[in-house]
Amino acid sequence: MLELSILGLPTAFFAGIASFLSPCVLPLVPGYLSYIAGGSVAPTVSSAEARIARWRILGLSACFVLGFSLVFLVLGASITAIGRLFLSYRYELNIVAGVIIVISGLLIMGVVRAPLWTQRYYRFESKASGGNPWSAGVLGIAFGFGWTPCIGPVLGGILALGATAQTLDQGMLLLGVYALGLGIPFLLSAYFMTPFVRRLGALRRTGRYLRIVTGVIMVLMGIAVASGQMVRFAIWLLRTFPVLGNIG
């Protein structure tokens, strides 16, 4: 669990943030928030009513985040279960997972061009009207499935790492932290909607830098996984940065 805590969990969290800031997610966040809220997300009413409205939107957005988090938790459990079926081929599994993680990192950085199918999403229309927890949760589940091709390079690397986890709990924890990294910015953008819209351009630029950093980390982690040096790498990080021992 040591190498998963020190390496996997922070990487999964920042990978989730990078997914939120990706070109195929970030520009569509205001539209999603508007649907979740059942209309305008920038009420022009008194400050007290606006504050109540913001908390209401935040609550509905939390239902949305829970929806796609459930999808990622199921994916994490499933990929870990599949990985455990090949315990007798753990060496080969680590090599394959490491290669996938390295390729994912290169895709995130833009060093390797992603296939066209990873730049699209599948949109699921909900028949329920927005503005209630049920529709927000259903939309979150649809988001989890529909945006999987779009965030595929990031999610694929995290899933590959999850396949090497020793237990289902570890795999679900890894994907849960990824969902947390994706969900927290969404909740912040829901509560601070007006400043969020004004700073979309700056967030796009920040997203580019974050994707590069995340990509480099994933490439290094992929090499460590493929070479079987994850534990040694984790111990080196722990000695170099003792604060990492508080993670997990």
Score class of each variant (00 low, 15 high):
P30L: 07
I100M: 11
I212G: 05
F241C: 08
F72V: 02
L139F: 04
A234C: 09
V41R: 00
N94W: 00
G181F: 04
A37H: 04
I36H: 03
A62M: 06
L60P: 01
V29L: 07
C63W: 02
A202S: 13
I184H: 00
I212M: 14
G152W: 14
L203T: 07
F86A: 09
L220D: 04
F233P: 02
L21E: 02
S34K: 13
G215S: 10
F86G: 08
A136K: 02
I108L: 15
G144Q: 01
G228N: 07
P153Y: 11
G215N: 12
A114Y: 09
G59I: 03
L174Y: 01
A62P: 02
G105P: 05
L238Y: 11
G144L: 03
I36R: 00
I82M: 09
L187Y: 02
G98T: 01
V197C: 05
S34Q: 15
V197Y: 10
I52C: 06
Y32F: 10
V41C: 06
A77I: 10
L200H: 08
S129T: 08
S69D: 03
A202E: 14
S104A: 12
L173G: 07
L70K: 04
K127L: 15
S135E: 08
V102N: 06
V112S: 11
C24S: 15
R120L: 13
W117D: 14
V197L: 12
R208W: 14
S135W: 05
R208C: 12
A163C: 03
A42P: 06
T240D: 01
V231D: 14
R205Q: 13
P242M: 01
I223H: 03
G181D: 02
S19H: 04
F186Y: 09
A165P: 00
F241E: 04
F13Q: 07
A114C: 11
R208P: 07
L87K: 11
S19T: 11
M172K: 02
V243W: 03
S129A: 13
A179L: 07
A42F: 13
P185M: 00
W117A: 15
N246K: 13
L244C: 06
R90P: 05
S19V: 10
V112D: 07
G201T: 14
V138F: 01
L188Y: 00
Y91I: 10
V219E: 10
G38P: 05
L87I: 13
L188N: 00
L26P: 10
F192V: 02
L58A: 00
A50R: 14
V41P: 06
V71I: 05
G76C: 09
